[in-house]
């Protein structure tokens, strides 16, 4: 098992802080490196420092300089990172965003829940799943699962009994 490292690519400080709080709440022992934009994420991923290569990447889509999807594309195109698990964490639930992310090789697409308790739960699930792996498998063989926003039924009904 050894050293566990999450690369969090997130430009919004608030979001990054909330992620930190959620991780602390989940109780998973993990180190987090934060990149504030896509370019910085690529620098970290392709630095010569072997230790800098993360166990999993939590990637936002809407990023300055290099977008999340471009980062994802680079990750999948390089031998060194092609098998790296990438989880998209986004505020968007647009079908197009979700489809593009999976098409470019995302392992999961998570729409960040607004409710912090739900968000903490999702982060706990994600970390224990992706960090519990013994060794990386090619991304194409990694089971893909789409974690939905919340425990709410995925009903389009508005204002029905919740």
């Amino acid at each position: 098992m050894g050293h566990k490292l999450i690369l969090l690519v997130e430009d919004d400080d608030n979001e990054a802080m909330l992620m930190g709080a959620a991780l602390r709440k989940s109780g998973v022992a993990v180190e987090v490196t934060r990149a504030q934009d896509g370019a910085q994420a690529l620098d970290i991923l392709f630095s010569t420092d072997e230790k800098a290569v993360p166990t999993v990447v939590f990637l936002d889509l809407n990023l300055p300089k290099v977008s999340g999807l471009e980062v994802l594309e680079r990750i999948r195109s390089e031998d060194r990172t092609s098998m790296l698990p990438v989880v998209i964490l986004s505020g968007s639930s647009l079908e197009g965003d979700i489809r593009n992310a999976y098409r470019l090789g995302a392992n999961s697409y998570v729409k960040k829940p607004v409710n912090f308790d739900e968000f903490s739960g999702v982060v706990k699930q994600l970390t224990s799943y992706w960090l519990g792996l013994n060794e990386p498998v090619p991304w194409s063989q990694v089971p893909k699962h789409r974690i939905e926003t919340s425990a709410r039924p995925q009903s389009s009904a508005a204002g029905t009994g919740r």
């Binding site: 608030n14 979001e15 802080m17 909330l18 968007s92 960040k112 607004v114 409710n115």
Partner: peptide
């Protein structure tokens, strides 16, 4: 869409304060 992001902050930081 964009309204959700600040809302996440409001709820998240409130939760952190409470806990």
């Amino acid at each position: 869409h964009d309204l959700r992001s600040p809302l996440r902050g409001i709820d998240g930081f409130s939760a952190i304060l409470i806990e």
